[in-house]
């Protein structure tokens, strides 16, 4: 197996505060392969922003190490880390553009830091602005741009030094759904065309579903689970994973009142022509109650999920389960997950 572009090993971070130490990260082990789009999802306060800052050592971990292309970041001097950071672009929720510089000079900024001649830097900046579709706003100042445009400038700026990795810290959280979609498409395009490995930090499952190949769920400072996004959708192994997959409405439905068993049925697109629920009800001659249903777009593939309440009599419930087994529809029981 080839060396992962980023390997996080036994990483931990503790902040010293006036009220004593606060644990932000614990026992983090992750490997990100070159060329993938890797998602890190968690609720606010889970530690994901700290984690992404540990990757480029904006935050220095208190335990463990990060390896970039096999090189230990912990062993590096500050100057060496600054060099490595040029191979890792970063974009932010609040864009963090230089307000007193116009668009082109913002994009030139990282090149200025490395001493690229002005003319060459401008040329490269114009190319990048073309990539993000903003070549006509080169002379505008950030205050004159919309949120989506600002993030495009930030992306162009982050790409200026030809990084191998792009770290995205809640990059779409300040944007409306439509703009979010466009920015995510742009990130995907950059990943495919330029071969840049993208690490996406978010609290929104929709972002993960839209562009990520693999995902790590972080909960209470630890990694709850890691795996392919489609795998997580089919079979979440952690309580937090299920919560993120089903959303709040789904979770409430699955919780029910405890009197009956609930199961979550997953549709991966093959069954779209087959009326599964109707057939199931007819075949089992047992009524089921649909508690929740939703369709998700996972990397362009429609995946549906439904929470249904099984018949209250044990016989009927068994028949439904047997039916699902016989037609090979993935399902899982969700009552027991009450965390």
């Amino acid at each position: 197996m080839e060396t992962p572009i980023i390997r996080i090993k036994d990483l931990g971070k503790e902040f010293k505060t006036a009220n004593g130490p606060v644990r932000a990260l614990q026992d983090i082990n992750l490997e990100v392969s070159a060329g993938e789009i890797f998602g890190i999802i968690g609720l606010s306060g889970a530690g994901k922003s700290t984690l992404v800052r540990c990757i480029n050592y904006l935050e220095v971990p208190t335990e463990g190490d990060v390896f970039f292309e096999g090189q230990s970041m912990a062993a590096m001097t500050d100057a060496q880390r600054r060099m490595i950071r040029r191979s890792m672009g970063m974009i932010f929720q609040q864009f963090n553009l230089l307000a007193q510089r116009n668009v082109i000079r913002n994009v030139c900024f990282p090149l200025e830091l490395t001493g690229v001649p002005k003319k060459e830097a401008r040329q490269r900046a114009m190319e990048l602005l073309k990539t993000v579709g903003l070549e006509d706003r080169a002379q505008a100042y950030p205050a004159q741009l919309s949120g989506g445009q600002k993030q495009r400038v930030a992306i162009a700026r982050a790409l200026a030094t030809n990084p191998k990795v792009l770290l995205c810290d809640e990059a779409t959280s300040a944007l409306d759904p439509n703009t979010t979609k466009q920015i995510l498409e742009l990130l995907k395009e950059i990943n495919q065309k330029l071969g840049v490995t993208v690490i996406v930090i978010t609290h929104e499952m929709a972002v993960i579903e839209a562009i990520c190949d693999r995902v790590a769920i972080i909960d209470q400072s630890r990694i709850a689970e890691v795996g392919a996004v489609s795998e997580l959708f089919l079979n979440p192994r952690s309580a937090i994973g299920r919560k993120l997959i089903m959303g709040e409405a789904g979770e409430q439905a699955a919780g029910g009142d405890g009197s009956a068993r609930n199961i979550r049925i997953i549709f991966d697109g093959r069954e779209s022509t087959e009326p599964i629920i109707s057939n199931m009800v007819l075949a089992c001659s047992a009524p089921v109650n649909i508690m929740y249903a939703a369709t998700r777009d996972i990397q362009g593939k429609a995946m549906g999920q439904m929470v249904v309440q099984l018949p209250e009599d044990a016989d009927g419930a068994e028949r439904v389960i047997d039916y699902l087994e016989s037609i090979k529809i993935p399902y899982e029981e969700v009552n027991s997950y009450e965390a």
Partner: peptide, 23 residues
Amino acid sequence: GVIEAAQSMGASTWQIIWKVLLP
């Protein structure tokens, strides 16, 4: 955040003072 962005690009302390803080 602006200073953090400059750090993420590998800016040194002097560069941050001259190119970010002051302007």
